[in-house]
Simulated scan of single mutants.
Amino acid sequence: MKIRTADLSDVETLVEFNQAMAQETEDKSLDTSTLQAGVRALMLDSKKGFYLVAERNGTVVGSLMITTEWSDWRNGTFWWVQSVYVRLEARREGVYSALYAHVKAMARNEDDVCGIRLYVEKDNAAARTTYENLGMNQTAYRMYEQMI
């Protein structure tokens, strides 16, 4: 398996993955044109973050997105893992583990990265088990939002 930073040639695959993930985990349909613009915007502005993709035999089988959050408490940056998706036929084959190992290696090479975080749907037991098996711990925080 090859892990690489996604580029503009991956936009359609990432749009497909994001739509599938939203439908599967939240029963949400995402607007294709908005999503395409959002994926492109991130790729064209590294300050927003980056995507990693996992390829097997030349086919992208999984992906994730990293965004950042500054922590004044730690004088460091958290990397947030978002938009995780692995093709159905490639699940339970170490795709996410390989992506996450790559993220950890990259983060360790950055002077200001103090940790890696993600959020997960509370009812997604399979994802929670995967994250725990990779050494992540549930925090005491709950997430709130207000859409604008």
Rank of each mutant, 00 (worst) to 15 (best):
L88N: 15
E12V: 08
E110W: 00
W80Q: 11
Q19V: 03
E55Y: 01
T32I: 13
E26K: 12
K122M: 04
S63F: 00
L8N: 12
M147A: 14
F17V: 11
E132Y: 00
V15K: 06
A54S: 15
E121M: 05
V60W: 01
V61T: 05
D112L: 10
R56L: 09
A125I: 04
R91H: 05
T5C: 10
K47C: 03
Q36C: 13
A107R: 02
L14Q: 04
N109C: 15
V15C: 12
I3C: 13
A98R: 15
A54L: 12
A101P: 04
D112M: 07
V39T: 08
E24M: 07
T5D: 11
A90D: 10
M43N: 05
M136F: 14
E69V: 09
D27E: 13
A125V: 06
N57Q: 14
G94M: 12
K47R: 14
T67S: 11
Y85A: 12
S29I: 12
G62Q: 06
M143V: 13
L8R: 12
W73Q: 09
T13C: 13
L64G: 12
V61S: 01
V60H: 03
L30Q: 07
L44N: 06
R142S: 04
L52N: 05
R142C: 02
G58C: 14
K47G: 05
S63K: 05
M147Q: 10
R40C: 06
M106L: 15
K2F: 01
L64K: 12
R91Y: 02
R74L: 15
S33Y: 03
D45R: 10
Y141E: 15
A107P: 05
G135P: 09
D112G: 00
L44A: 01
T139N: 02
L8A: 13
S46I: 10
H102I: 04
G49E: 09
V60P: 07
G76R: 04
L118C: 11
E121W: 00
G38Q: 08
A126S: 15
Y100H: 11
C114M: 07
K28D: 03
G62S: 07
W80M: 12
G38K: 08
R56V: 10
V15G: 07
T139I: 03
T59M: 03
L30S: 04
V81N: 05
A127K: 11
K2Y: 01
T67W: 00
G38R: 08
S83F: 01
M21R: 08
R108I: 06
R128F: 00
R142E: 05
Q23T: 08
G49W: 03
T139S: 11
A54I: 07
A37R: 14
T68E: 14
L8K: 14
A126E: 15
Y100W: 04
S9I: 06
N18L: 10
I116P: 07
D45C: 11
Q19R: 15
V84M: 14
L64I: 09
V60M: 10
Y119A: 10
T25W: 04
I3T: 15
M65V: 02
Y119I: 12
R40N: 07
Y141G: 03
L8S: 13
E69L: 11
R117P: 03
I148Q: 06
A140D: 08
D7H: 08
L35F: 01
E16S: 14
V81P: 01
E145I: 02
Y141P: 01
E24H: 06
S71T: 11
I116A: 07
Y51L: 13
